[in-house]
Amino acid sequence: MKCSEARQILWPADDLRVGDDTVEEALAHAERCPDCSAFLEQDRQVAGLIRDSVPRAPAPRELRERLFTALARERAGLDSQAQKTRAAWGRRWVVVAAMALVALSAGSFALWISEGGPGRPSAATAFAQDYLRRVVEQESMRGTDKEIAAFFVRELGVAVQPPKIPGFAVNRAIICLLNGRRGGVIEYVGKGQQLSFYVIPVGDDPITEPEDLRVGQIAGDLSVSIALSAETGLAVATWRDGPHQHALVGNADVDELRLLARRYACPVART
């Protein structure tokens, strides 16, 4: 076998090939021929170097955010509508997103609920269900209440102080992306239960100044209507105060969540 034939059969040197007679013959040639073995060795080295030196460029955060926002719109089936009515988004924000904590055994689920009626329940639920765990997580951190508040100021322009819930400890704070809006989530754990508290700024105007938002006082009183729902084993409470949409989601039952939600919504109810 000629060198040129052997090389044509054995190139690329880093490729696996079926060892038929021709390949065997070419391999035997390369073993005896120093030029061909040098050629193949160099080819292997070049292949390694190519893989090693390939220009790597992580997707910028803005791209990630833009992409997931676009996907969220696609999933909600609202793309064209959203294009036309972008300005009205804040006022027409009638959906509440809720996402569960990463469940210990069963993974996590999310819900997307129409506040005032049927709306688009199937698309909305499907959308939320797909927004699981780290897909929606933009940033997360663990720290003291003060550090968490500072984190939310930095990321959202809202100083959310984690409310204290007896029997629950703050696990971490997360920035999430729901239906194209950035929001904050505080995760709690306790007694085999998990709880997520959401703050999603939905005001029409962009937030320019950090607000001194005290979660326990935002609702004023319980005249604020708390919508309760249960799906896929999760309880969800939702309410809105002015420019913020809130949700409380947990693997608790609905009655228990109603009691817990009052702690978030009303300072009087909090201990």
Binding site: A59, L71, D130, R134, V135
Partner: peptide
């Protein structure tokens, strides 16, 4: 989900897009 799967591969896909286009804006 699709979002989860693409989320894991996004950096590599972005590198590939940048290599193909040789332009940041067009890659995005």
């Amino acid at each position: 989900t699709f979002e989860e799967l693409i989320g894991s591969d996004l950096d590599d896909l972005h590198s590939a897009a940048l290599c193909f286009t040789q332009d940041r804006h067009r890659a995005e």
